[in-house]
Design a protein around this nucleic acid. Structure first.
Ligand SMILES: [Mn+2]
Ligand SMILES: [Mn+2]
Length: 628
DNA sequence: GGGTAAG
DNA sequence: CTTACCCAACGCGAT
DNA sequence: ATCGCG
């Protein structure tokens, strides 16, 4: 077994090589590491021969646990962010939480296995062996899969998922140490350092400054290479602006300052700051195309910044055909008078439901839906590129279509008021659809008095394995216990596994009083069958039980809108049920944006028709019976 | 998705 | 015209 | 204070 090996390195090329003779892998940016495993002994060695075994002790353990006596692996130690996660995981966790990051060893080659040197074998024979060796193993050690052929598609995917690029490898080639033409790397972006020589004023709502003016040293002179105006966070914008103000100067530090109106708006500064900037390519006249700011280099003296040699292109592909002009997106259909961009955008790619179809769905049920959702502050779940894409909660709205109303909400510990979205009619809902809103969550109070709730909701969240009949029975129990107190209630599906029981009340008690009542009521329900019900949110206490969530009944908390869609597979919707259906339905009623109309055609009547006219109050008598 | 930047 | 990037929440209960 | 949760 060899004690050391020089790694194979990829040549940089401009385009991904085409043809079936290539395997394409995502290019990871990290530490290139060879792992030598000999029985229990593992060494992790970097490209320049440094031993990193102690630093990467978690990885050392993973390699030691591999089912092989001897092995040499090649790969990259990377910090893997959880954005390769599937839609549903992403949706569950899209709240802002510190991104947990872990060092992961992404292995892409196997050079030695149990007495056999595999370096002479073809890549297409080495990789299956590697996959078998590390498969089913996740966490610290992962197999780097590849795509056969379709290099252009692979590159496009890599770049749109903001990966660094693609490494293409000849499938029939042995492992050769050193720089090789069998491995070709293609980068989505180039990255380089530049001297900051000035800045421009901000426009619109932008703060601090607009762009940084950049230059490089060239034969002792500073040459202007363009400006970078994107990639800044609000924090870096403010920080950099403060530093720029201290180093302003009258004259341009570059020998070739831009002329005309462009130049007039530039504030020149002493050339002491160095910025790291990514860009797609150099233009003919020596400027950066599509530059984006990455960060300031604190460690690099400005006078050492020179233009790096443009990449040599050993690639043979001559010219890229100009892409056919994407048919201009001028076709914006109107629904309820609201203009929709990208009407064919797939919001639910699994079932082929588009933005336009969602708008038409809301149009078709608006009359039934509006009484229950209009004139309330809203929380929104937006997924502008569909439920499988990045989703996020939004409460404060700005730059929404005019059809979407707003209500000023006073948030605790905030002297200012904040605008929340509000539905005033069908056009508002279509306006939300235009903004990629896949879930609408109304408050339990109305815009004209947000601090006086007019309805409670009991949210039944069953353990996934509980049968429908149990969930339905629980809802019926809650209904009858509410009835004993003198309260009528209404039922709906949630679009998930659970149910919502809705109780309209006369606006009078505060949120605190309503929450106390809800908690006491749920505690009472739990006491009836503690083995089946729980009021405790913690997942560990919910196994095999139904979690009855009373915390929905607090200020600012919400439940998904009735008739509202869910950002989940299949485009499910939350649907009103007759109480009789809870008794008679043998299976969980499940409806979608696509098929709800079939139910409405045959149902006859509206299960929630008399909810809005119901007048009932939370009384002293009810409270005392619950011991509040 | 909208807004602010760049080429 | 294009591309690239940032930004888009919060409160409760348990520990 | 921080975490888990919806
Ligand atoms: Mn629920
Ligand atoms: Mn976008």
């Amino acid at each position: 077994m060899p004690k050391s090996i020089d790694v194979e390195l990829a040549s940089l090329v401009k385009h991904v090589p085409e043809g079936d003779r290539w395997f394409h892998e995502i290019k990871f940016d990290g530490y290139r590491i060879l792992a030598f495993k000999d029985k229990d002994r593992v060494r992790l060695i970097s490209r320049n021969g440094k031993d990193w075994t102690e630093r990467f002790s978690d990885i050392e353990r993973s390699v030691a646990a591999l089912p092989a006596a001897q092995a040499i692996l090649d790969g990259e130690v990377v910090v893997l962010k959880p954005d390769g996660s599937t839609s549903f995981q992403a949706l569950q966790n899209f709240a802002r939480q510190g991104e947990p990051t872990d060092l992961t060893y992404m292995v892409f080659d196997l050079l030695y296995l149990d007495g056999t040197d595999l370096r002479g074998a073809a890549l297409e024979d080495r990789k299956p062996l590697l996959e078998a060796l590390v498969s089913s193993r996740d966490g610290q050690l992962r197999y780097t899969d590849h795509i056969e052929g379709r290099g252009d598609v692979c590159f496009e995917q890599a770049c749109t998922h903001s990966r660094e690029g693609v490494v293409s490898k000849r499938r029939d080639a042995p492992y050769r140490s050193g720089r090789s033409k069998d491995w070709a790397k293609t980068k989505c972006l180039q990255e380089q350092e530049f001297v900051v020589v000035g800045y421009t004023d901000p426009g619109g709502t932008r703060s601090a400054f607009g762009a940084l003016v950049l230059a490089v040293h060239d034969n002792g002179d500073l040459k202007h290479v363009g400006r970078v105006g994107t990639g800044f966070s609000d924090a870096s914008l403010a920080d950099i602006h403060a530093r720029l103000m201290g180093i302003e100067r009258k004259e341009a530090p570059v020998v070739d300052p831009p002329a005309g109106a462009q130049a007039a708006s530039i504030h020149w500064v002493e050339p002491t700051l160095v910025a790291e900037v990514s860009f797609t390519e150099w233009t003919q006249d020596g400027h950066l195309r599509h530059p984006a700011f990455r960060g300031l280099r604190e460690d690099k003296p400005a006078d050492q910044v020179i233009a790096e040699e443009p990449v040599e292109l050993p690639d043979t592909i001559a010219e890229v055909a100009e892409e056919p002009r994407a048919s201009s997106q001028g076709d914006r259909p109107l629904v309820a008078g609201v203009s929709l961009s990208n009407p064919d955008r797939l919001f639910w790619p699994d079932v082929g439901i588009t933005k336009l179809e969602l708008a038409h769905y809301y149009e078709s049920i608006a009359e039934l839906m509006l009484p229950h959702v209009a004139h309330r502050p809203l929380s929104l779940v937006r997924c502008p590129s569909g439920y499988t894409g990045e989703c996020f909660y939004q409460k404060h709205v700005s730059h929404f279509p005019k059809a979407v109303g707003t209500v000023a909400i006073h948030e605790p510990d905030d002297s200012e008021t904040v605008p929340y979205a509000k539905i005033t009619g069908l056009p508002s809902i279509v306006g939300l659809v235009q903004m990629g809103v896949l879930e609408i969550h109304p408050w339990g109070s109305r815009a004209d008095d947000p601090d006086r709730p007019d309805r409670l909701v009991f949210d039944l969240d069953p353990d996934t394995e509980l049968p429908w009949k149990t969930v339905a029975g629980t809802a019926l129990l809650i209904r009858s216990e509410l009835s004993r107190l003198g309260l009528d209630s209404w039922l709906k599906t949630t679009g998930g596994k659970g149910l919502h029981v809705m109780v309209p009340i006369v606006r009078r008690p505060s949120w605190t009083e309503v929450r106390d009542f809800s908690k006491a009521f749920v505690d009472h329900i739990v006491s009836l069958e503690p083995g089946l019900f729980t009021a405790s949110m913690s997942k560990s206490q919910r196994g095999g039980k139904i979690f009855i969530d009373y915390v929905r009944n607090t200020r600012g908390a919400t439940a998904v809108a009735v008739y509202g869609a869910r950002a989940r597979p299949g485009a499910p919707v939350s649907v009103p049920l007759y109480w009789e259906e809870a008794e008679s339905a043998r299976e969980r009623p499940e409806f979608t944006v696509r098929n709800l109309s079939a139910r409405l055609d045959t149902l006859g009547g509206d299960p929630w028709a008399d909810l809005t006219s119901k007048r009932q109050s939370l009384t002293k008598g009810m409270r005392s019976r619950l011991g509040v």
